[in-house]
Simulated scan of single mutants.
Amino acid sequence: MKVFFEGGADRYRYEVEFENGHKYYYEQTGNTGHGGGSGNLTMEEMDLGEEAIDKYKQLNQDTTISPNNSWGNPLGIVIILVGLFMTIFPYAAWYLEIGWKLRESHPSDLALIADRLGGILASIIGVFVLL
């Protein structure tokens, strides 16, 4: 069997051609991928095609993974920073949220604890968004 690869910025395609002329392919555009093949392709050939593509990826250091996407969604960094701000400076977080609307008022201990816990939770969520 032969394995062919063609790829672009946001799209790639693997094609496996068997000796009997049957073909199996897998292509991905963005985050969506699908596989298929010629009409007379057997399930065994599909499995062999997937194995051949996996082996091709291993031998060629999986050219479909872009090094530019290694840090995930940058929104995670913003969420982490907001969470850290809320955790370290709960009084300032309270003031920015509601304190500026009130005259000569101070947050309760419960409000400061809630801001700290919210900050910790936001930081944890930010880490998962980042991945």
Rank of each mutant, 00 (worst) to 15 (best):
G21H: 11
I120V: 14
P90C: 05
D109Q: 10
L130Y: 14
N20F: 04
A92E: 15
E19W: 06
L75H: 14
G30D: 00
H34G: 14
N31G: 12
L81Q: 13
N60R: 07
I79L: 13
E15P: 00
E51C: 03
S38H: 06
R103K: 12
L131V: 11
A92S: 15
E51P: 00
A111C: 04
G76W: 12
P90L: 02
Q28A: 12
I80N: 05
E104A: 11
L96Y: 07
H22A: 03
L121E: 07
P107D: 04
T42A: 00
E97R: 05
D62P: 07
Y95R: 08
P107Q: 14
P107R: 13
V127Y: 11
Y91W: 03
M46T: 09
S70V: 13
D62I: 13
I88E: 09
E15S: 05
S105I: 01
G21W: 06
V129W: 08
I65L: 04
N69C: 05
G33K: 04
Y12W: 06
W71A: 00
L41H: 02
F128K: 09
G126P: 10
F18P: 14
G35P: 02
F85R: 11
Y91S: 09
R116N: 06
E19K: 15
G35W: 02
W100R: 12
G30M: 02
A9D: 10
G126W: 08
L121S: 06
P90T: 06
E44C: 01
S70F: 11
E45R: 05
I125A: 12
E6W: 09
Y91P: 00
E44T: 12
V129C: 02
P74V: 00
F89K: 15
S108A: 06
V16I: 03
R11F: 15
Q58E: 11
A114L: 13
I65D: 04
D54I: 07
I113L: 15
N69M: 07
V16F: 01
T64M: 05
T87G: 04
L84P: 07
I65V: 15
G99W: 11
D54K: 10
S105V: 05
I120A: 09
K57N: 09
A9V: 13
M43R: 13
T32P: 00
Y24D: 04
G119C: 03
R11M: 10
G119H: 10
F85L: 01
G99M: 04
T63E: 08
K57Y: 02
E6V: 08
I98Q: 07
I77W: 15
R11A: 09
W100A: 05
I79D: 04
K55V: 13
H34N: 08
Q58K: 15
E6R: 13
P90G: 05
G7A: 06
E27S: 01
L81S: 08
I80C: 03
K57F: 07
L75M: 13
G119E: 09
G39S: 11
R13M: 04
D62H: 10
Q28V: 13
N69Y: 15
Y24P: 03
G118F: 10
R13H: 03
T32Y: 07
K101Y: 08
L112P: 02
K57G: 05
